[in-house]
Design a protein around this nucleic acid. Structure first.
Lengths: 150, 150
DNA sequence: TAAAATAAGACCGAATCAATCCGATTTAAA
DNA sequence: TTTAAATCGGATTGATTCGGTCTTATTTTA
């Protein structure tokens, strides 16, 4: 039930990216793009780690990258349209509490016929829904007033 | 985002326990209690693993145990009142996606003052709510018709 | 054309986790 | 009183994954 450190760091890195390139993407590539080194400096994370993170985030379509001198990173879409679920899935893959769903095998309980298995997709979807409800913009606000969610 | 194997097995073990001791607790200790060995046989899990699991489940108050010959296990309360959240918390501890909440330290991003941290409790509570909505009785049904939630 | 700056991928050490085993304690039955 | 059965607790071993570092390839500017 714990998030992997990489996913945890990815959330922090995305918040930092959203601050440095507030609404990139719309105004072309002429903007001042933030690079991985600047993100590492702001977040305090080791630079190679941030580089590996942005690689996955770019591959997942959450960030856009420009190579070469003067290159850097930019948010692929508006920060309001990026949720926690997007970031977690970009780093950890599909949201699934158990490996039952992915592969065909993994017979943890062959004797039962595993009556539990058919119910996992429902739980996974509920979790995904909960994470989808948290946009990146909410994580950017430094205030600590807890916004009551039911 | 993956459940630990122990928590995964605990869910299967609890389902098996709920089948062998349908509604124990009310009718005293005179019932036929299932022991850890029988649960291991039915679930296909290794016996030592099941023993360690039931230890934690008893400590968490989900199962009651009777030591000595003729002893065994019984559900502490009705299967309908035991949720996925209870089982996960019994094995893994409090539901928290990041270690930020528990301890005071763990400064993953000292530069930012970690604007993300105050928002984690909200996410954790949402996840806990999703898991609390799945009672043990639902997991016992062997049918694979997906009951639409949402 | 050359140099510099960037992203992207491969490699390796380390830590956590899962699984197993062994002993101690307790209770019921013979 | 003795024996057997069953839980409880800790300690050990092995493996998988995670985190970090390094090297390579590509692109842009001067």
């Amino acid at each position: 039930m714990r998030l992997s450190s990489m996913a945890d760091y990815a959330v922090v890195a995305m918040v930092a990216a959203a601050r440095q390139c507030p609404t990139a993407g719309a105004d072309g590539d002429a903007r001042a793009r933030a690079n991985a080194g600047q993100l590492a400096l702001e977040t305090g994370l080791p630079a190679p780690t941030v580089q590996k993170l942005v690689s996955r985030l770019v591959a997942a379509g959450l960030l856009t990258s420009a190579r070469g001198a003067g290159g850097g990173l930019a948010l692929a879409r508006d920060a309001h349209d990026i949720s926690l679920a997007d970031i977690v899935e970009a780093v950890e893959g599909p949201i699934a509490l158990t490996p039952c769903v992915e592969g065909i095998s993994h017979d943890c309980a062959p004797g039962l016929g595993c009556s539990v298995r058919p119910h996992w997709p429902v739980v996974n979807e509920a979790l995904r829904l909960a994470l989808s409800g948290v946009p990146l913009t909410r994580l950017m606000t430094p205030q600590d007033d807890v916004d009551m969610v039911q």
